[in-house]
């Protein structure tokens, strides 16, 4: 069978094969309760990956996502007491703002996004260290439950995080498929010069893509802080690599223009299955990043569109 035609179907086939394989060796894996908790646990990562999808969809990358989530866990913990539910708005605004800065640096100062977002991530990390005094912070448990308890409860057997994930997926899917913003981002990813020559304000849409990425990274950070009832400047470390893996194994290549948020949903599930099977096979946490690193290299090599990439440096 021809690989190019097979390629778009690779992500879900991989998922089915992996689930079948792990289900065969580990007979507790396919129990609904296990699957539900598995899916619930991966939601912060999924939300971050959802945001990253927008940066990668336009052919860029957002390496600041993890530092952003770190910063937001600190911001949420520090300001929950004074702002109550308003802290959520603050968190999203911080994420949006930092994303805008990344986008501005990328489009106006013409710094490649992998450097601009790395730098902005460094700034976010420092800010997190400053705000937290380099300590782990705790939220007041009663106040957390009063304001954000709904995020982490359960409705019947289903973790509420899954509803949040589904809601965000629906919103981002709508943006991607049905709005001028989504269409413009696709054009920028698939053929930026043609988009510019069609009179599209390419820079504005790119800045928006990074801002969406930042906002969703902030959402991920907020949810993570609520789950752990606290924050620290390094608490979300280890998120970035699996989040990028989720986007890429889902089928949105680094060169952009194809794939999208639905692909990322599948990619995140693949990451979740890999992660839980590593626990089953007793692979230590310290070695998990190695596995994700290898999967990432494999996924990039398989998905990248070499016609768009004249040279690799």
């Amino acid at each position: 069978m021809d690989f190019q035609r097979f390629k778009p179907h690779l992500p879900w086939i991989t998922l089915v094969v992996l689930v079948a394989f792990v289900g065969m060796v580990d007979d507790t894996f396919l129990r609904p309760a296990n699957l539900l908790s598995l899916a619930g646990d991966i939601v912060p990562l999924f939300i971050m990956a959802l945001g990253l999808t927008f940066a990668i969809y336009i052919g860029g990358i957002d390496l600041s996502a993890q530092s952003m989530a770190n910063l937001i866990t600190v911001v949420a913990s520090v300001y929950l007491a004074s702002f109550g539910w308003g802290v959520a708005v603050l968190c999203l605004l911080v994420g949006f703002g930092f994303g805008m800065v990344s986008g501005y640096v990328t489009t106006r100062l013409l710094v490649p996004s992998f450097i601009s977002t790395l730098a902005v991530g460094g700034v976010a990390f420092s800010l997190a260290q400053f705000l937290s005094g380099q300590r782990a912070l705790n939220m007041d448990a009663a106040q957390r439950d009063a304001v954000f308890g709904w995020m982490i409860g359960k409705t019947g057997p289903v973790p509420n995080e899954l509803f949040i994930a589904a809601g965000l997926l629906a919103i981002t899917l709508f943006i991607e498929r049905r709005t001028t913003l989504g269409r413009a981002l696709k054009a920028v990813g698939a053929g930026e010069p043609a988009a510019a020559a069609s009179g599209i304000n390419v820079a504005r849409y790119k800045i928006l893509a990074f801002a969406i990425s930042g906002t969703l990274a902030a959402t991920a950070g907020l949810l993570f802080a609520v789950k752990l009832s606290g924050g620290a400047p390094t608490i979300a470390n280890g998120f970035l690599l699996p989040a990028i893996v989720a986007v890429l194994v889902g089928g949105t290549p680094l060169t952009g223009g194809v794939g999208g948020v639905l692909n990322t949903a599948i990619g995140t599930l693949i990451v979740a299955v890999i992660r839980s099977s590593m626990l089953y096979f007793n692979i230590q946490a310290t070695q998990q990043q190695m596995v994700f690193g290898l999967v990432l290299i494999g996924a990039i090599a398989l998905t990248i569109d070499r016609a768009k990439l004249r040279t690799v440096k």
Binding site: T179, T180, L181, K186, A187, A190, A195, A197, I200
Partner: peptide, 26 residues
């Protein structure tokens, strides 16, 4: 390179310069 966006459909290409005319509220 500058004329069409490969990977996008014919209709998406045709309305690329006039999305405002084919949308409401984005």
């Amino acid at each position: 390179i500058e004329g069409i966006v490969g990977g996008m459909t014919v209709y998406e290409n045709m309305t690329l310069s006039q999305m405002g005319r084919h949308s409401r509220g984005g």
